[in-house]
């Protein structure tokens, strides 16, 4: 199956629909809608990347933009990740607001110099002179049998680099609010689109709005355990929290929305209330963002903890191909529930 076929469904269900008077929009469609609205209001925004133009992106989340905005602003580039990021950096320094797409998050590795040594550091090395309003969009996460080079969650690598902001929307509402914030932001941001979420719809306002970067969101209030879930794991953690609620464990679910900057204060506040912390992410456990959160919590809220911090994450292996293995690899509601129960 080509990525196209995989996401055909995503695009179909990605359109808007009115249900109970509430406007619903798919996760992938939210990218398209946001981009179109921003490009209409701000001429300095353009998109460049592999197959983003005529094809609308291999996941379809740029579909329809080139017909409206033309080839000059929705630019098909060669398969050249370093040059794509370089294109964005050079244009951003010139005052434009580029959105450059890296197709699969795994491909950031090909462009690591331009991201880590150039985009992230130029402003600092230049003594503050440069603004770098660059948004890098890329599709991360597994669950599609795309195997080890097309399924990774590499956000922790990026979070380690001062100068970058790393954004992980968990639903279509956040896609719109966070992408708008990223594009209007004067710093390089990496906007990680979860490819398994593309077809999921939820309520999304029609007008552009911003969700501030660095502010987490309490998805569900609770008193017994704090669950921090990242990206698509918010959905799985929500299911787990509902199940456990029936069993008498009242979880408070926090979605940080951005992992760099990280809203640690929100987590500290919650842990000081619940005394328990579980961190959930798709990336491998070792050196994952959960390790950073756990370290900061023991620094800032050690006295409130009633149990060791639990991490539910992928095991230390590349993402396997076989659907059976991959299902075991990526955390799901069941594993999250088990992780939470470990604390009690």
């Amino acid at each position: 199956m080509s990525p196209d076929n995989i996401f055909e469904g995503a695009n179909e269900s990605g359109g808007t629909e009115e249900k109970d008077g509430e406007r619903k929009l798919g996760y992938g469609a939210a990218v398209v809608e946001t981009m179109a609205q921003i490009m209409r209001e701000d001429e300095s925004v353009f998109i460049a990347g592999e197959d983003v133009g005529a094809h609308g992106g291999v996941f379809g989340y740029y579909r329809g933009l080139q017909p409206e905005f033309g080839e000059d602003r929705v630019v098909d580039t060669p398969i050249a990740e370093q040059a794509i990021i370089g294109l964005g950096i050079g244009a951003a320094v010139q005052g434009l607001r580029p959105v450059v797409d890296l197709m699969f998050m795994d491909f950031i590795c090909v462009a690591m110099d331009q991201i880590v040594n150039q985009a992230a550091k130029l402003k600092y090395m230049f003594g503050g002179g440069a603004k770098l309003p660059l948004t890098i969009t890329t599709a991360g996460g597994g669950g599609l049998s795309a195997a080890a080079q097309h399924s990774q969650s590499l956000e922790a690598m990026l979070c380690h680099v001062p100068g970058l902001k790393v954004v992980m929307p968990s639903d279509a509402y956040e896609v719109k609010g966070l992408l708008t914030a990223c594009i209007r932001e004067d710093n390089p941001t990496v906007f990680i689109i979860n490819k398994r979420k593309l077809g999921d719809a939820c309520h999304v306002p029609e007008e552009l709005f911003e969700i501030p970067l660095g502010k987490g969101h309490i998805v569900r209030e609770g008193s017994d355990a704090t669950v921090v879930a990242i990206g698509r794991m918010v959905e799985e953690a929500t299911k787990a929290a509902e199940t456990l609620s029936d069993e008498g464990i009242d979880c408070e679910l926090i979605n940080p929305r951005t992992v760099q900057p990280l809203d640690i204060d929100l987590i500290v506040e919650s842990v000081s209330k619940t005394g328990h912390l579980v961190i959930v992410h798709e990336a491998v456990r070792f050196g994952g963002i959960g390790a950073e959160i756990a370290a900061q919590i023991q620094e800032k809220a050690f006295d409130y903890l009633d149990a060791p911090i639990e991490r539910v994450a992928a095991p230390f292996s590349p993402v396997p191909f076989s659907p059976v293995l991959e299902k075991k690899y990526i955390p799901d509601a069941e594993r999250i529930s088990a992780g939470i129960k470990n604390l009690f």
Binding site: Q82, I85, G86, L87, G88, G90, A91, V93, Q94, P98
Partner: peptide
């Protein structure tokens, strides 16, 4: 590559 961006 950065000069490519400026040219763009």
């Amino acid at each position: 590559p950065i000069a490519v961006g400026a040219a763009f």
